[in-house]
Structures are given as C-alpha cells and as structure tokens.
Design a protein around this nucleic acid. Sequence first.
DNA 1: CAAACCTTGACACACTAGTGATAAGGTTTG
DNA 2: CAAACCTTATCACTAGTGTGTCAAGGTTTG
Lengths: 116, 116
Amino acid sequence: MDALTIHEAAETSGWSPRMLRYVERTGLVTAARSASGYRLYGPGELQRLRTLKELLERFGVGLSDIAFAARLESDGALREAVETWLRSEPQRPEHVSAADWLRFEQDKHEKLLAAA
Amino acid sequence: MDALTIHEAAETSGWSPRMLRYVERTGLVTAARSASGYRLYGPGELQRLRTLKELLERFGVGLSDIAFAARLESDGALREAVETWLRSEPQRPEHVSAADWLRFEQDKHEKLLAAA
DNA sequence: CAAACCTTGACACACTAGTGATAAGGTTTG
DNA sequence: CAAACCTTATCACTAGTGTGTCAAGGTTTG
C-alpha cells in the first residue's frame, strides 16, 4: 500500500494527525492530495516524518529551527549574510586567548586611570 | 574611546540597553566586564551589534534563528543530521519534476480505481 | 556625598510555536 | 445509508521570544 491516510500515517510515523497538518504548514513535509482533497502519505513522506521526529528529539530543536535551516539552504542571500556575520565573531570566550583578554582589560584600566 | 558603557553602546548601535543584555543571554554578542562587573563594549562588539540588527531587519529573522545558525556551525553532529534530513527531501514542489508528480498522481488514480 | 550610572531580578505584555479538542460539513465504504 | 473517515476553522492552553519598566542595591564621578 503506497498512499496512507492521515490517521494511518500518524500511527506509523509517531506524529498526531493534528501535528501532521501543522508540519505541513511549516513546509517541511507536504502530503499529496487525492481528488477529493484527502492527504495521501507515500513511503517517502513517512520516512521523512520519522527521521524528522528523531532529529527534533535527539537534538532538542524545534520545527521552526529546521524550517529556518531549510530557508538557509534555499535563500543564498540569507545564508551569505548569516555566515558573514558569524565569521566576524571573535568575541566568543572560547575564541579569545587569555593573553588577549588580559591585555584588553589592562588597556581599559590604563584608559580609566588616564581619564580620572 | 574604546570601551563604551551599555547606555553608550545602546545609543550608537540602535539597540536598547535591555536588549543588549538580552542579546548577551542568547550568546550572540557578549560584552567584556570591568572589575566591578560593568559591561564594556569595544569597537568589535559595536560593529557586530549594528550588523546583527541590520541582518535581522533585512531578512525578517529572529535572534533565535541566528542563535540556531551559530549552533549549527559549532555542533557538527547537528549540522550533519539537519543536512542529511534536508537532502532526503524530494517532495518540495520546486524539487519535483512535473513528470514525477504526474506519475505519482496517476499511480494513485490507478490504485484508487483498482480498489473501487 | 549625591547624582547618575551600572547590575540582577522580576512583573508585564504581545506574539509565535506547538499541541489538543471540538465543530460543521464533505467522502468513502461495509 | 450510516459509520468512520477526511477537510478547514476555531478555541484554548503552555512555553518561549522579544521588549519595556521598575525595584533594590553596588559604582563612579563631579
């Protein structure tokens, strides 16, 4: 059987019917439609639904995060801008050497003393 | 003047002091601290704050989205899993050829007719 | 030392994400 | 044809994001 209805798909994928409709609205897994408008889930959709669920649970991320990742993949300008911003990011604690940090602090002390 | 206080940084970056503290909690832009705990913003932080604000406004994304992108960059397993999931994604309208779609629909019709 | 800063914490509010339940109405099927 | 599906739309509720304001208390500075 290739095309399951939403309840059948829900049972075999671990999502609720309600959530399958919600997932569809996020654009992450879209079901085909029968002539009368019923959602039809094929093996591909079922597979993606299962792996999507596992992905969310394993990393504790949300549907909106994955939707954003999808947007990053399809919107080159956005991906470009985000990556550029992230690369100009030397202030994260792990990336600052103790020596640099100390020098920064000392510079500030000098300035504060000089200003007083 | 290299190190600005939070109010000064707010005025020159376009964020409110409240939001600068919030941005810091997201981990995206962290200020250095004076000996007594005051936040000190250097030119680098100011630059990143300005470009971050422009990034958010230009693309209509949220701080949490950029925070997620940062997590993608630093967590290889997560990036791997997300990319793998996105690649197994042939059902997005743009990625499905008209011929494939038609065949899928026809298959379903055959099945529906056969079942009737 | 008092005014003008800074800090964290908390109350408050609007909006989005995520999720269930339920209603009104069409479809499929034994 | 009636039971068991399906559809969209709506109400409701929790949690998280984004943002302002205010309180209690430490710091800096004219």
